[in-house]
Every structure is written in C-alpha cells, then in structure tokens.
C-alpha cells in the first residue's frame, strides 16, 4: 500500500501534464471554431449528421416520460383550461368575423393601388431532433438538410413566429440558431411606431433591444416584427412583444415557446447571399432602395414612415 503511493503521485503528475496539453488544444479549438472556418463547419455538419439518429433515439424515451408528466400535471387543471378555452373561442369568433370583412376591404384597396403581389414563401418543415436550451448555446437540430434545399442563413419559423435562422447545414440535418442565443441579432421594427431596432438574444428568456432611437418610446405589449433590413430575413414575421423590467428597461419576450417546439419550418427561398452579390459592388453603408425588398417602417426612398396611433 505504502510502496504504491509514489507511483500513484508520479502518474498523477504525468496525467497533469497531459491535462494541460489537452486544455491548450481545447482553447485552440475554441478560437478556431469562433473563426467560423468552412472546414470546421463541414466537420461539425458531418458529425451532426452522423450523431443525429443516435441523439434522436436516446432523446425519445426521456421526451415520452416528460410528456407523461406534463399530461398528469395538466389533468388537474382541465376544468379551468376548458373554461379559458371556451372564452377564447368566443373572442376569436368575433375577431374572425371582423378580419374577414377587413380582408375583403384590403384586397379591394390593393387592387385599386396596383400593389405588387408578394412572393409566396416556399417552406420545408422538419422535426426537432435535439432539445433547445443550454447555458452557453441555444441551438436546435432538425432532420432536414441539403437534401431538402436548406441553406445557411435561411429563416426558421413556427406557427407563432420567428424561431431563428440556419447556421449550419449537413446532408440530412440543419442546425438552427435560436433568437434567444447570445450570438443572434435580428433586425426588427416596433409595429406601433415603425421605429427600426435590433434585438439580441441573451441566452435567457428575454431579448435585448439595441440600436433603438432615443426618440422612440416602446409601449408595453407592443408587437415586434422582423423589418427585413439587410435582406437576410423576410419582413413581417412576429418576433415577440415588448415587456418592461423592474428597472424600467424594455425587453422583448419571444412569442415562440422554444421548449414546446416539435416541428420547425424553414423558408427556403430567402437567402441573403444573392441579394448582396447583386446589389453591392463596392462598400455601401446603406442598402439601395429596391421595390422588391419591402422594408417595414421605411418607404422606398429610405425615409421612416410615420403612422398616427389612431390608425
């Protein structure tokens, strides 16, 4: 027992040196990964493709058990839920009747003004393989990749609004960077006042509002939508609603519940690259006005549209 002790300490010291080497190697990997090299990206995409079926198979039982727990939990509040849903249906019926008459009016006005018809989005819907959320990264893997024409930069949506955008594509899987991730920045506009801004994720539940004019006064509950600036994302996709913190600062609460996501749609006909290569020959700080890029909150000459609150 005593004779074995020095050899144990010796092995610990050699282990320590190996540990240092591995930590240094990892640090190099971290910075290489941050450089976003195509080779690193391709390796990641290949390995994600390779590990996706295993991940899905291992996640399945835990997901099922979690589903059972949720069902049991919700069973206790079925009566309250039923009452709430009935009142919601009544409200929605009223809204629906109003909306159908307004839709007809809108169509007539569009016809009168000869508004250019909007291009219909092509959508590919995939199933989420991994669970979202994490302390350092908020991404999702879906089971559709290059085989369905998905490319990097394409927006991911759900029925409630914007989920994020594609950051890496493999042959059979795609990785989506969620809007709540710290590396995600989305150009948006405030729907009531038309002020443009950028929302940034914080790896939490709320999004930070950045580059908002000091003249802008956000209203609590105001809807935030994508503005289409930069031509990376289409305009008019719901992002969230403005909420006020205890400190008086305004944040955006996403409309999408990222933990209930099962199916995610990718808008496959929206990529930033063709627009950029076509339009910019030299350095251009501002985008050239293009009638096909309907930028919300700005008119064709690039000036901000003012709308009265009564409208």
């Amino acid at each position: 027992m005593v004779s074995g002790k020095p050899s144990k300490i010796k092995s610990f010291k050699s282990d320590k040196n190996f540990n240092y080497i591995l930590v240094l190697l990892c640090l190099t990997l971290v910075f290489l990964g941050k450089l976003d090299l195509i080779a690193v990206r391709n390796v990641k995409a290949f390995l994600s493709d390779f590990l996706a079926p295993v991940t899905y198979a291992l996640n399945k039982p835990v997901k099922e058990i979690a589903g059972v727990f949720e069902d049991v939990k919700s069973a206790g509040s079925l009566r309250e839920e039923n009452v709430r849903l009935k009142s919601e249906v009544r409200k929605l019926r009223v809204i629906n009747s109003k909306a159908s008459s307004q839709e007809l009016e809108l169509l007539e006005l569009r016809e009168l003004l000869k508004v250019l018809p909007e291009r219909k989005n092509q959508i590919i819907t995939g199933r989420a393989i991994t669970a979202p959320g994490g302390v350092f990264a908020n991404t999702l893997l879906i089971n559709a990749g290059k085989n369905y024409g998905i490319k990097i930069g394409q927006p991911a949506i759900s029925s409630l609004g914007l989920v994020g955008y594609v950051v890496n594509v493999g042959l059979k899987t795609s990785r989506i960077l969620l809007i709540i991730d710290i590396n995600s920045m989305i150009p948006v506009y405030l729907t009531n006042s038309n002020w443009p801004a950028v929302v940034q994720g914080q790896n939490g539940k709320l999004l930070k509002i950045k580059f908002l004019s000091s003249k802008a006064v956000p209203i609590e509950g105001e809807v935030i939508q994508t503005s289409g600036h930069g031509a990376r994302l289409p305009s008019g996709i719901n992002v969230g609603k403005v909420v006020k913190s205890f400190s008086g600062k305004f944040y955006v609460k996403p409309t999408v519940d990222f933990h209930r996501l099962t199916y995610i749609s990718i808008i496959t006909n929206k990529t930033s690259l063709p627009v950029l290569t076509k339009t910019f020959q030299d350095f251009a700080p501002l985008q050239k006005p293009d009638s096909s890029l309907s930028l919300k909150g700005l008119n064709l000459s690039g000036k901000r549209i003012f709308e009265s609150p009564e409208d």
Partner: peptide, 17 residues
C-alpha cells in the same frame, strides 16, 4: 459540443478542469 452546437472545446475544458 457538437450535439448542442456549443463552441468546440468548451465542455472539454470544463470536464478536464
């Protein structure tokens, strides 16, 4: 890191430390 889409190497550093 590959499954979660985190920066390659961060979890390894944590585990080794």
């Amino acid at each position: 890191d590959i499954i979660n889409g985190e920066n390659l190497g961060t979890t390894t550093i944590f585990l080794l430390l």
